[in-house]
Design a protein around this nucleic acid. Structure first.
Lengths: 179, 179
DNA sequence: ACCTGAACACCGTTCAAGT
DNA sequence: ACCTGAACACCGTTCAAGT
């Protein structure tokens, strides 16, 4: 199998899902693909861009879309999209770090983040406020996932809620109430 | 000067503030202190605990307290504390990552985070909800700082607001409105 | 065009041995 | 008790040289 950008990124996604970010090194990736490390740099510019591509692979899926028509209010659609994102990222080790790298480099390529912004906009927020609201909600999603993943990693077996949904509802309520 | 836990942590804080997390390696730290790397491990268990201690040094300062009596409403005190935290962390490179390590390891030693929780509690939220609200606000602070720091790092010179304060006001409003 | 081999300049952690 | 010296098992990135 020839080495392509696609195979490199897909293998990276695999390593991330199976072993976490600590094991996703360029050298490990090269070993998995049975090539020398240097070969990777023909297909990806550097590790940062690779991680951005990994994030895009993780997020740009049909599962992480929401059909606004299926919801009574825009707020409900927003809630649902956020919950989907949270649940999708939770089982992927270190996903918040990966997404952060990507959204710093190129938020515009992460479809669910864009849809989140769109939903907020069509719910009545100005273009700028929709961007801010998207930030608030994304911060909460990634922060909650990171917090939760740290708990299991430190075998704090307290299976207590991380308060994600509670905080989400409060945040959305704050975004849509005028005062 | 004898090597102590205190000097190790203080020097680590120095390196972080001057050069960022990428330069804060155990080896660089040893060089700065003019000892061998191994010597550090007599004074700190590992790098993770060192970073937690660094975070505590950064946050546990009198500057980052708020006098509730000075504010008309608890919500105002919460707003002020969050803004103080945001402004304090912004100039410290990679501070969100450091704080996250620390709050995963030992939230209970970060005074401003505890005060934030306390303020929410005394504002009427249940003990549990105060914890959740603290999470929501901390997520927003750290997320906004990280976002802002990434912008300057990628020399995206757009000095556009990160919407921190806008999001903060919405979040606080959501926390204190009952619906 | 695509890949190898090898180098450069680093990491965190451990541990026998010294004082 | 505290530190050195040295090792172990890694990193990301670059680049002449091969095909």
């Amino acid at each position: 199998m020839a080495l392509t950008q696609l195979t490199v990124v897909d293998t990276a996604v695999d390593i991330l899902q199976q072993f976490g970010l600590a094991d996703l090194s360029m050298r490990r990736l090269a070993k998995e693909l049975e090539v020398q490390v240097g070969a990777l740099y023909w297909h990806v510019k550097n590790k940062q861009e690779l991680l951005a591509a990994v994030a895009a692979k993780l997020l740009n899926t049909e599962q992480l879309r929401v059909i606004p028509e299926n919801f009574a209010t825009p707020a409900d659609a927003v809630l649902q999209l956020c919950r989907k994102l949270y649940l999708a990222l939770l089982p992927i080790q270190d996903s918040p770090e990966v997404i952060e790298v990507a959204s710093a480099l190129q938020v515009e390529q992460l479809n669910p983040v864009l849809q989140l912004r769109d939903l907020l906009h069509s719910a009545g927020l100005s273009t700028e406020d929709a961007r801010f609201g998207q930030q608030l909600l994304l911060n909460h999603i990634l922060g909650s996932v990171a917090y939760r993943q740290n708990l299991v990693q430190l075998d704090v077996d307290a299976p207590q809620s991380d308060g994600f949904d509670w905080g989400l509802q409060r945040a959305v309520s704050g975004l849509f109430s005028r005062d």
